[in-house]
Design a protein around this nucleic acid. Structure first.
Lengths: 194, 194
DNA sequence: GTCATAAACTAATGAGATTAGTATAGTTTG
DNA sequence: CAAACTATACTAATCTCATTAGTTTATGAC
């Protein structure tokens, strides 16, 4: 019908991400993406390098968006308040865009060529968190351990939450608040400030 | 050739789990499972209900094995020591059997019929952890929040680790120790003992 | 020994990803 | 302004994989 539909890579990736959010990343098919965009499946190959390429693009977009939100949340805050804001932003992102977040976490154990853009985006994602941790005056080593613990906690909680792992009739917000508070209290153990 | 190869469901599931550990759960195909067992793909249907059924069986086996290991690790221990042992066992399981563990975490958001065996196994998995937490004399509500925080922390850390998310040259064991210690310290905030 | 059943098989179907080759709408250039 | 170029869409075809249907045969029950 229309030999030009005016698509570009970003549009394709966004459509794929929206579908992944709705139906789950593992249920994402090129057929569905094409249908949503009003084109035939092979036409997608003009914009993306197949399904693996699409997943890689989604990962880059996801990491950047997560970074943006986390950075935004921490602006003008330090210490406890900054950690809490950052953690809330992280969790909110996973809840709002579970498919895009899942794409961000691509079991790099099995990814053959570590996409350079992705690696770069992943490194930048650490910056806001390390910046916030800097206000606790940790040694470099302590800060890196703290970074790992923070990301692991947020990642674990948020993924369990969106997976439906918290079945009980108990406030999930309250559980998360306690997790973050406990983490912050633990930071003090290594911190050089009050 | 051999109209009887002497297979049963458990053997098929174990073969699938071994493949998932090696190649990743998302790369698991019935063809590979059949090849490893020396039969043709359709023959698997005599033992399992297709790929979704196989994944469900893997989830049940995975949860049970995880529960067994965690319970075993906590035998004869209480308090801090029990939590540390339990956490180490959890992490060790994820490292040794990443595919089987991944099967355990099936994004129940998209699972249509919540397998009764699986639901039962999942409930039983909480028992050893709640038992250990009981030694901290928490209120019921505090114990459930603590349970969520503990599973989220262990899950998050272990999955990030096996995904290759900890790239830096910094002891992962030490990071995990700090995560668990911080958690334990946080428990005391709500605990009625020492 | 006969029979029922379980467990293997082959053949066929359908979904989905991918590649090859074709056509056309914009854009660039003379 | 028209010719050529290029990007983007298409159809057709192939490959892998899951799944179903129908067939065969070993093994255990009687």
């Amino acid at each position: 019908m229309s030999p030009r539909a005016g698509l570009d890579r970003a549009t394709v990736v966004e459509a794929a991400a929206a579908l992944a959010d709705q139906k789950g990343l593992e249920n994402l098919t090129l057929g569905h993406v094409a249908e949503r965009l009003g084109i035939r499946t092979p036409s997608l190959y003009n914009h993306i390098a197949g399904l693996p390429g699409l997943r890689g693009e989604m990962a880059v977009v996801g990491v950047r968006e997560l970074t943006r939100r986390v950075s935004q949340a921490a602006i003008g805050k330090t210490g406890d308040e900054a950690i809490e804001a950052l953690a809330d932003a992280y969790r909110a992102f996973v809840r709002e865009r579970p498919g895009l977040y899942a794409a961000t976490f691509p079991a790099s154990r099995f990814r053959k060529p570590a996409h350079p853009d992705l690696q770069c985006a992943e490194e930048e994602a650490l910056v806001p968190m390390l910046t916030v941790l800097a206000s606790f005056k940790l040694t470099d080593e302590d800060a890196l351990h703290a970074l790992r613990c923070l990301t692991a906690s947020m990642h674990g909680f948020a993924t369990m939450e969106v997976a439906g792992g918290f079945g009980l009739a108990l406030s999930v917000d309250e559980s998360f608040r306690r997790l973050v508070r406990t983490y912050i209290d633990g930071l003090r153990q290594f911190s050089q400030v009050s």
